[in-house]
Nucleic acid binder design. Structure first.
Lengths: 391, 391
DNA sequence: TTGTATGCGTTATCAA
DNA sequence: TTGATAACGCATACAA
């Protein structure tokens, strides 16, 4: 056999070798007997990629059983309820496990046991620090209880979320953690029929029919608005996430409206600007606010990120905060404190919320008839970005 | 029928009732006709646990098959390779699927098919926005290809990460996305033997033996340090994440050292402060910097969050930035632009990195012999927080 | 094109 | 205390 190769480059040769092993039906070893330095190099690389050291099959329960000369049932017991097997056999089995480097196949286990020790969570987006933070605390608490977390993010899409709920259930999640109460009722039906406990976080609604760990978005924002109005503001703008399908946002908006109504300020005095999440988005919305006829004296933002973006843009445009314009946020994340001026906002203990949700959910998995609602208290953080209007 | 019960406690009774319904073949409703308060209580509890509104068993392939009057194999084919089944039976089957609300059991599917269309990712923490952002882009690209993402976070613990790698593999992840190259070599061995492709992101090392999508932390930080030194700074401090087990941090530190060496600045002129991630942590570290003898004129931070925290604290303590002290960051997240003064930093295109990693990984799953390294370019962002030293 | 039958790696039930 | 063995729900080789 004689082969001519124009040595182009190594990676091309690699491909070539693979093609050759295929067409000639020679093993890579046989091909290696051909002499030529580029060739050898290529062969070596190809060998690495193509596993001449073939993929070892994972050891199974049966392998361990054979190795330890016991039945598969015994091995299984050793791993799941070690107290039900006598000391001597147990060590024998555990040794075999270690020697073979055995790891249980999760899917098989789930299939047979109908329990996965896994809880699923769906959040609107991972990019928003407050969800990340609540989730982190949630996960830490689960971890302490030997439960693993499966995360999905829905990009604020209701249908995506529904898909993901089904997906998590079909993956065997023992329970679900969801953000916001507002979703198609048939989803709650579905979960109930499947016997999958779920808790809803980030909102609190006394009348909700699902277990909840959250705060009262309406009251929190209303308190802040009352404070704003008490300072003398009458013309208000709000920069908020799209309120449609988002009960956190719509409740907060309702809070502002309620405070205005109680102070006899006509609802038309409120300009509402919807935008997506982000610092730049907050800035862009602020520009629109400034373009409004009869300019508002205060901008109440749906979260701190929008607020900080608004402040930055306002300063760029030559406004002084809060002298020329007041700005408020929601959440009280770190940037609220380092923003200049520091940001007036609503403090939400996200970590605690995540942790409480985990505890509740674990209880529910253990005995399903827990149907609790936990109210997380928020508090006003009055800082420098809010002051009485000048005019 | 006459039954005597010594009323021990409610839960015992509950069990008893369940036993009775089993043995007598009477429904709980019928048993409820018996009068006795403890008894009634027990019956009620038992009813709750035992779901008289019974948990509907999930429909299975077999149910669908029966409903559509075909074999399970046909139903399976309809779902997985619809082109291999004739139009008429297909619609019949799909109707049955819809009517029964059938969802495939993921675990069973994984067990039988050895492919899950799932890719696992392990990041150090979800709380750090840059990981969240890269991951979000990663996930979006996977989503476009019908692949779902499994996320785990290791809290920067090497052993936790190792556990999670095994866990993801045992869950059937087809491939893995990892941050940083630096881990026990036996992990790479393990993955290779299992035939699980993995890509490493956030770093770039030409000599690494695993596929990589990342940027050169060393060179990027070195360029920034050169800039700093060119401005005249000699006494430098750096606030960094713990460099042990963290090749991103250690490479960046090495970059500073290299730039100093080239400028003949003795290495002792660099004060190194390790801290954890967070705005407050950056602030605390800054206080330590100010306490240093022969105070540095510039603080180079390992990331923007630390930098912004440092700036805020410095301002609180009455320093003017950059007049009294220069500060730099790394990553170029949004707060870099809104910080005041705006932050000099290294721009890293996290989104693009995540997306490229996804594309590469998908290729690798399809034909395992891709062994690519992709270098993501970074760039300097010189802004207001850096100026020549005053002395 | 469709159906039958087997196996995937566990857990759980029952008998020994 | 242990060992057989039957599920678990699905995919697929093979046969029809």
């Amino acid at each position: 056999m004689k082969i001519l190769i124009r040595p182009v480059n190594v990676s091309a040769c690699t491909t070539l070798v693979q093609a050759l092993t295929f067409f000639t039906q020679l093993s890579i070893r046989q091909l290696q007997n051909l002499k030529c330095s580029v060739w050898e190099n290529a062969v070596k690389l190809a060998a690495m990629n193509r596993d001449d050291t073939p993929t070892e099959r994972n050891p199974t329960l049966a392998d361990v059983a054979r190795h330890a000369k016991v039945s598969t049932a015994t091995v299984s017991r050793c791993l799941n309820s070690p107290e039900r097997v006598v000391e001597k056999t147990r060590t024998k089995v555990l040794n075999a496990v270690r020697e073979l480097g055995y790891t249980p196949n999760f899917n098989a286990r789930a299939l047979a046991a109908k329990r996965t020790n896994t809880i699923g969570a769906i959040i609107p987006t991972m990019e928003n620090a407050i969800f990340a933070r609540g989730l982190q605390a949630f996960q830490e608490e689960l971890g302490r209880n030997g439960i693993t977390l499966l995360v999905a993010s829905s990009s604020y899409q209701a249908d995506t979320e529904e898909e993901q709920i089904r997906s998590l259930v079909s993956r065997g999640a023992d329970a679900l953690f969801l953000i916001g109460y507002n979703r198609d009722p048939k989803i709650y039906d579905f979960l109930r029929r499947q016997g999958i406990p779920a808790v809803v976080a980030w909102v609190f609604d006394q009348d909700a029919v699902v277990p909840t760990v959250g705060f009262d978005n309406f009251t929190a924002m209303k308190s802040l608005a009352e404070q704003v109005i008490a300072m003398g503001h009458r013309r208000i703008a709000t920069i908020t996430a799209a309120v449609h399908d988002n009960d956190r946002a719509s409740e907060r908006l309702r809070g502002i409206h309620a405070a205005m109504a109680e102070a006899d300020i006509p609802a038309e005095q409120l300009s509402i600007l919807e935008t997506t999440y982000g610092i730049d988005e907050g800035g862009a919305a602020l520009e629109k606010v400034l373009g409004l006829p009869d300019r508002p004296t205060v901008v109440m933002c749906g979260n701190d990120v929008l607020a900080v973006g608004a402040i930055a843009r306002a300063k760029e445009m030559g406004l002084r905060i809060p002298d020329d314009l007041s700005v408020t946020g929601f959440d009280d994340i770190e940037i609220a404190k380092i923003s200049s001026p520091t940001l007036t906002t609503v403090h939400v203990p996200h970590r605690r919320m995540g942790k409480e949700a985990a505890i509740l959910l674990i209880d529910m998995v253990n005995d399903k008839d827990t149907n609790m609602k936990i109210l997380i208290e928020t508090s006003l953080q009055i800082r420098d970005s809010l002051a009485p209007p000048r005019d």
